[in-house]
Design a protein around this nucleic acid. Structure first.
Lengths: 240, 240
DNA sequence: TCAACGCCAACTGTTGACAGTTGGCGCGCC
DNA sequence: GGCGCGCCAACTGTCAACAGTTGGCGTTGA
């Protein structure tokens, strides 16, 4: 948090709103703010040493991008994604990821292929060590690398926006070794198709992989189904 | 414009920011604000009878959704989409539209099929009359109907966000009768595949159709290539 | 004549204050 | 004791004012 304050002090070059926006986004994605929680403007303003203006502007932006949820006269809340909508997000993510992999198959260069293979190997190692946290991180890097190499700014942007929303889902990272192994096997297949220049196959596999993520999420959800009921979130009540 | 004022007066139920946001979005999409133009906070605030706060919050949201572009200390500008990015937007739009059509093929009901066929027939009529404006409107309705019938909220949301951005492109509607005819023939093929329940084919055709839109845009762009050079827009200059 | 410097108006970034709303707490009535 | 009403604190929505920055215009000097 102190580095946040310093950021505000230092960079007068970028606007406070931008900094606050990044900070709120970070807090949400890091889990400092859990889904359904209200964001207290005054408190946050005081904590970041700014007035409520920049806070409000920042939240307005995050509302638009789907991370937050605004209710008139009650404030903004960290968005709670209903199950059916989460499912839809996975669907769209799948087709975008499929497109990206297909594109990558047509333009990948050897050193990129090496980098991806190395990530897969490292993920295997992490699974062997039972190191779920490392696997999670490597998995993100893997998908990041693919997005990078595909060099399609808009696909990347769309994909990342969707990813951020799925981060709002509960316990996204709790994966069994079995599931990790399954997932990494799919990675290997995708890369093989990309390496072979078979875009059509890469796309199909990538879509299946993303749908696998959806299935794995559903499974893990079901396992922990009779946990505490999620807190109630005020949903939009627009009369218009 | 007067109805905007009344909206502000009447509905205290929704926030001014929301109304302002809708209004700016409308102005941008309607062409009242052209790409590259700056949005004067004071002037707009005065015109809508509100203070600068709601204006700033509204613009912040639209920046996040890609319609506007903010430069520190200079203000917000109607976003100008570079050609390469426009091309990317068409790409993503294509895969999303493909997905939607594939999905629709698996769930369409007869009356929906009739509605779509009727729209295609009306478009043919419009082409026959040389009525480009009607064709444009019907074309939007057609795609809207498909999005509706597919009943996939997130795909729809993603697609519409992309559509809005392409509306920022210059002269999106100037289409020759030849292009309209070509486009509508593609519509017919897509619907035929959907009617046959052939999702795979519907998807491929839908993607080709969307890419056709990209090509038609490129063509029309090239025709009017040596028009006035687009005004310079201050682009992001984030030092961080 | 031209270039560089400095002043100035306009506008954005930010703040603090005011007004209206919401949900809860306590009091009073049944 | 339970239910309903009204008051109150907290918070959001909105506004007007202040401070800093930017780009342009005029001036001055070579």
């Amino acid at each position: 948090m102190s580095d946040v304050l310093s950021a505000i002090a230092q960079r007068r070059t970028q606007t406070l709103t931008g900094i606050v926006q990044d900070e709120i986004e970070r807090m949400v994605l890091a889990g400092d703010l859990v889904a359904g929680e209200r964001i207290n403007e005054q408190a946050l303003a005081a904590r970041l040493g700014v007035s409520r203006g920049p806070i409000r502007e920042a939240t307005r932006g995050l509302v638009r991008s789907g991370l937050l949820n605004s209710v008139v006269n009650l404030g903004v809340f960290v968005r709670q994604i209903p199950d059916d909508e989460a499912s839809e997000i996975y669907d769209v993510r799948a087709v975008v990821f499929g497109f990206v992999c297909q594109r990558l198959a047509a333009r990948i260069v050897p050193e990129q292929l090496d980098a991806l293979s190395e990530l897969i190997a490292k993920m295997d190692e992490a699974i062997g060590r039972g190191d779920g946290a490392s696997y999670y991180r490597l998995n993100l890097s893997f998908h990041d690398a693919i997005l990078d190499f595909a060099a399609h700014g808009r696909a990347r942007q769309t994909y990342e926006a969707l990813i951020k929303e799925t981060h709002l889902l509960r316990q996204s990272a709790l994966a069994s070794a079995e599931r990790m192994r399954e997932s990494n096997a799919e990675h290997r297949e995708i890369i093989a198709a990309i390496a072979a220049g078979d875009g059509e196959r890469a796309r199909i596999l990538a879509e299946q992989h993303a749908h696998g993520g959806k299935r794995r999420w559903l499974d893990s959800r079901q396992e922990s189904s009779r946990q505490e009921s999620p807190r109630q979130e005020p949903e939009a009540r627009n009369s218009a």
